[in-house]
Simulated scan of single mutants.
Amino acid sequence: MKYKKHVFICANQKAAPKKSCGEAHGNELVDAFKAALAERGLLKEMRAQRTACLDACAFGPALVVYPEGTYYGNVQLSDVNEIIESDLLNNQPVERLKLNY
């Protein structure tokens, strides 16, 4: 596997009145994850990228961390460092943000 961890962040945009992660700062989350991983020198072993709908719009902005397949919902920009430290670096999901499917 090329990356130890891969973060897919929903940046899907739907027409109003439907809720969409892209409209709820999904794109900003992509930028924040990429910047935070770069600051830590982790870009060769971890990747963050935008994706289309994760089918979790009601809980958005949403993202999923692979290879574990841990889904997170209502992720805020202030949660980025906690997700990186806890989940990506220490394999401990952030329970308060975790979506149980």
Rank of each mutant, 00 (worst) to 15 (best):
residue 19 K to Y: 07
residue 1 M to R: 00
residue 17 P to A: 03
residue 77 L to H: 06
residue 67 P to Y: 10
residue 18 K to N: 08
residue 89 L to N: 07
residue 67 P to F: 09
residue 100 N to T: 15
residue 10 C to V: 12
residue 12 N to V: 07
residue 92 Q to L: 09
residue 46 M to G: 01
residue 25 H to P: 13
residue 26 G to H: 04
residue 89 L to P: 05
residue 49 Q to K: 14
residue 18 K to H: 12
residue 43 L to Y: 01
residue 15 A to Q: 14
residue 10 C to A: 06
residue 29 L to E: 04
residue 25 H to C: 12
residue 83 I to G: 02
residue 72 Y to W: 11
residue 44 K to E: 14
residue 66 Y to L: 09
residue 44 K to L: 12
residue 2 K to S: 07
residue 46 M to W: 02
residue 4 K to N: 11
residue 37 L to F: 12
residue 58 A to D: 12
residue 62 A to C: 15
residue 94 V to F: 07
residue 55 D to T: 12
residue 69 G to K: 05
residue 14 K to F: 15
residue 95 E to M: 13
residue 101 Y to T: 09
residue 28 E to F: 11
residue 17 P to R: 13
residue 12 N to Q: 11
residue 95 E to D: 15
residue 16 A to N: 08
residue 54 L to I: 10
residue 16 A to D: 05
residue 39 E to K: 13
residue 97 L to G: 04
residue 85 E to N: 13
residue 26 G to Q: 05
residue 64 V to W: 06
residue 89 L to R: 08
residue 87 D to H: 15
residue 49 Q to R: 11
residue 65 V to F: 06
residue 85 E to L: 07
residue 40 R to I: 08
residue 89 L to Q: 06
residue 83 I to W: 01
residue 26 G to V: 10
residue 64 V to Y: 08
residue 35 A to N: 12
residue 55 D to F: 15
residue 11 A to H: 09
residue 95 E to T: 14
residue 34 K to S: 01
residue 100 N to V: 15
residue 54 L to C: 03
residue 48 A to S: 07
residue 42 L to G: 11
residue 96 R to E: 15
residue 23 E to P: 00
residue 21 C to A: 08
residue 63 L to E: 00
residue 54 L to P: 00
residue 35 A to S: 11
residue 24 A to N: 15
residue 7 V to G: 01
residue 7 V to K: 01
residue 46 M to P: 02
residue 90 N to P: 00
residue 47 R to A: 04
residue 6 H to L: 12
residue 34 K to F: 08
residue 89 L to E: 03
residue 23 E to M: 08
residue 40 R to C: 05
residue 93 P to G: 10
residue 78 S to N: 08
residue 18 K to C: 02
residue 90 N to A: 14
residue 4 K to H: 12
residue 17 P to N: 03
residue 67 P to D: 01
residue 20 S to R: 13
residue 9 I to C: 02
residue 47 R to C: 02
residue 23 E to L: 09
residue 99 L to K: 00
residue 92 Q to K: 15
residue 26 G to R: 02
residue 1 M to S: 13
residue 53 C to Q: 09
residue 27 N to K: 10
residue 31 D to G: 02
residue 5 K to I: 08
residue 63 L to N: 01
residue 83 I to K: 01
residue 49 Q to N: 13
residue 17 P to W: 12
residue 72 Y to L: 03
residue 80 V to F: 04
residue 9 I to Y: 09
residue 90 N to Q: 14
residue 56 A to D: 11
residue 97 L to T: 11
residue 68 E to D: 12
residue 4 K to G: 05
residue 22 G to D: 07
residue 99 L to T: 05
residue 94 V to W: 05
residue 7 V to I: 15
residue 39 E to L: 14
residue 29 L to Y: 07
residue 88 L to K: 01
residue 24 A to T: 14
residue 96 R to T: 07
residue 86 S to I: 03
residue 93 P to L: 12
residue 84 I to H: 02
residue 42 L to R: 03
residue 92 Q to E: 14
residue 52 A to K: 07
